[in-house]
């Protein structure tokens, strides 16, 4: 099957997402608001000496801003799958010469890319103005982080897709996604770097996809770790998790299609 035929789905979804201007602006403003809240929170902690912070406060500000950005970059993709399953529309995609999973994933990437345009340009520029300086690693680190965050967001989409598929069993994907999101917040280091957690939490997190999709991409902003740790290891972790996610996604989908065939369209 030609993979090229899936690329128009990215293009169409990109276009579709951009056509909802107000939604994008509102989401962007919401994201920037939370970035500011967390930057100020860490500035306060630093100013009051409430916690010993082993990082430069501006680097930490970039870190918490980018973890927030990660959450807002990806569309709420599990809802699309959830709706397809609940309405029965998923059955009607089976009779098209395309894979439902590939189609939806690439649509998600299209929407993600549309968000990326504004977050990576206006968002980063506004952050630079607000924080007052670039991260210690400089522009190269910033670009590296942005590339890895994009990859992490794709991995996040794949896990959202799997959370969506659970609607086959649970009738509603929201509860599963809520659990997934809470784990992401804790084990992905959303509010603070994992190095500030107890060692065992960081160790445990490193075996989960949340560590790879969120913490590893933004970690270079803290100006710690070697090139090997920040780039080569991150790429290695991505390879492993992408393969595992593809396999898991495929298995879940095949199981669900069998279930669909039994229960009807």
């Amino acid at each position: 099957m030609s993979l090229l035929k899936y690329f128009p789905f990215i293009k169409l979804s990109f276009k579709n997402h951009l056509s909802h201007t107000m939604r994008m602006i509102f989401r962007f403003c919401g994201c920037f608001f939370f970035m500011v809240v967390f930057i100020e929170l860490w500035r306060l902690i630093d100013r009051e000496g409430l916690l010993e912070i082993p990082y430069k406060i501006t680097d930490l500000a970039w870190y918490v801003s980018f973890t927030q950005m990660f959450l807002f970059l990806s569309p709420r993709f599990f809802m699309v799958i959830n709706e397809d399953i609940r309405s029965g529309d998923i059955a009607y995609f089976l009779i098209r010469p395309i894979s439902y999973l590939n189609m939806r994933l690439l649509e998600g990437i299209g929407a993600l890319s549309a968000n990326m345009v504004s977050y990576y340009s206006v968002g980063v520029f506004l952050l630079w103005l607000y924080i007052g300086e670039l991260p210690s690693g400089g522009i190269v680190t910033l670009i590296t982080v942005m590339i890895f965050l994009y990859l992490g967001s794709i991995l996040h989409l794949m896990f959202q897709l799997m959370a969506g598929i659970t609607a086959f069993w649970l009738q509603e994907a929201e509860p599963m996604y809520r659990i997934y999101q809470k784990l992401l917040i804790v084990l992905g280091g959303l509010y603070m770097p994992l190095t500030l957690y107890p060692d065992w939490v960081e160790k445990f997190a490193s075996f989960t996809p949340f560590y790879t999709m969120m913490y590893m991409p933004v970690r270079p902003l803290l100006n710690e770790g070697t090139f090997f740790e920040n780039v080569i290891m991150t790429l290695g972790y991505f390879c492993v998790w992408f393969v595992l996610a593809f396999m898991l996604m495929g298995w879940m989908y095949r199981t669900c299609v069998r279930r669909l065939e039994v229960n009807g369209g």
Partner: peptide
Amino acid sequence: FGQRSQLWYHLPAQDTFDLLACAYE
């Protein structure tokens, strides 16, 4: 299927046609 739509709801029909043309190669 009279009760279902294969067109992308928010986009012009032309876009769906282009997409289907790619899907059906």
